[in-house]
Amino acid sequence: MGTLSLSDFEEVRIPAPWGHISGRWYGNRNERPILAIHGWLDNLGTFDRLIPLLPDYIGVLCIDLPGHGRSSHLQPGMHYSIYDYVFIIPRVMKEYGWTKVSLMGHSLGGIMSFMYASLAPHTVDMVISLDILLPKPLVDPGAALFEAARDMEKHLVEEDRQEQSNLHEPPSYTLSQLTKVLAKGSSNSVTTEFAKHLLHRQVAKSQLYPDRFYFSRDGRVKYYHSIFIEPGLAAEMAKRIRRKPYLIIKGSRSYYVGDCCEEPFSIMRENNPHFEFYEVEGGTHHVHLHAAEECARYIVPFIRHHRPPTLTSWSLAGKEQKLSLNDKRKVQERFFERSKNKRSKL
């Protein structure tokens, strides 16, 4: 068996009331794939370096969340929310007629996976979570309230700006400038070296200035409504996941998996031989992007164990088909030989 190819994919558009969800389905199209969900302000390009390291017998459907990448933006007047994002998972399942789902999520995508797995555990057969489990803890309620109020104001300002953008193109920059902006915005979790994997799906070419581009994602996603999951609720959610295969990979230099995860981790470990947790030394929040090989060391065995190849997925299947065709030829040859013998006797 080999690994997936980054060039072997089919572009997909999943219809939604507000437009469509854009995605790329890598590899095997004959079986239910792993559904891969990116993080906040990212897009499906975040998995570019990981995809070619995954086994080729199973497909991976990477999607752009609404407002991100090449997916449709929500209508004017609407607000992005983590609650609404969770509903994207069953929407994709319904589109393809899946009764089960395998999830791989980074950051926001990992939070969505945890929330969905706790809400509908009977429909989940495994989860791979990259440097996340829960939203960041609420340390200072006053600061959190101030932040929410500030984001509300900025969201309204962004709506006004978008109304004006019908008449004026957004500010544009060179790709070099956008690369630096992206790296700075991620606190260098996405380095300038790897920024290209995200930029190719979230910029549009300026119609006014040659060699300049502007961010095409919805500016309102910067002010989406996140949540704080208090410890008691987090514990109950973890209990509902029970014995589901669950892999968490943490970057050692990232603070997204911290003390708030200790009790859920303890619950998920208890009587669950399918729970795995690993830390990648030197990894930042985008650990799967800059340390893809290290992540694959844990992800590939996890996939092979919990989503093993079926007979129709094995590379041997092709040989079996050839053997079957050879058998048919032998039968035909014997038939013609017998017919020839009968004619000679006559």
Rank of each mutant, 00 (worst) to 15 (best):
T3W: 05
L6D: 06
L6N: 14
H20K: 10
H20T: 10
G27E: 07
R29Q: 15
R29H: 14
R29D: 08
E31H: 01
P33M: 01
I34K: 11
A36F: 10
H38G: 06
W40R: 08
N43V: 09
G45M: 06
G45R: 07
G45W: 06
F47K: 04
D48R: 11
R49Q: 15
I51Y: 13
L53T: 12
L54Y: 12
L54S: 13
D64E: 09
H68C: 14
G69M: 09
R70H: 12
S72A: 15
Q75G: 01
Q75C: 02
P76Q: 02
P76Y: 04
Y80F: 02
I82Q: 10
V86R: 03
P90W: 00
Y96E: 05
V101I: 08
G105Y: 12
L108D: 07
G109S: 11
M112A: 08
S113R: 09
M115K: 08
S118P: 08
A120E: 11
H122G: 01
V124K: 05
D125S: 07
L130F: 05
L138P: 07
L138I: 02
L138F: 00
V139G: 01
A144K: 00
A144E: 00
L145V: 08
E147C: 02
D151H: 13
M152G: 11
E159F: 02
D160F: 00
Q162P: 03
Q164C: 04
S165D: 13
S165T: 10
N166D: 05
H168N: 12
P170K: 04
P170W: 06
Y173P: 02
T174L: 02
L175N: 05
L175C: 03
Q177E: 15
T179Q: 01
V181Q: 08
V181D: 08
T191R: 01
E193P: 00
A195V: 02
H200R: 14
Q207W: 03
Y209R: 15
D211E: 15
D218C: 02
K222S: 13
Y224C: 13
H225N: 08
I227L: 07
F228R: 01
F228T: 01
G232L: 12
A235P: 06
K239D: 05
K244D: 02
Y246E: 06
K250G: 06
S254C: 10
G258H: 05
D259C: 06
C260M: 05
E263L: 12
S266V: 06
S266R: 15
P273W: 00
H274P: 00
F277L: 14
Y278G: 06
Y278D: 11
E281M: 11
V287S: 04
E293V: 14
E293T: 14
Y298W: 15
P301G: 04
T312N: 09
W314T: 09
W314D: 02
S315N: 04
G318L: 03
G318K: 03
K319W: 11
Q321V: 12
L325I: 08
N326C: 10
N326Y: 09
E333I: 10
R334Q: 03
R338F: 07
S339P: 00
K342F: 08
R343T: 11
R343L: 14
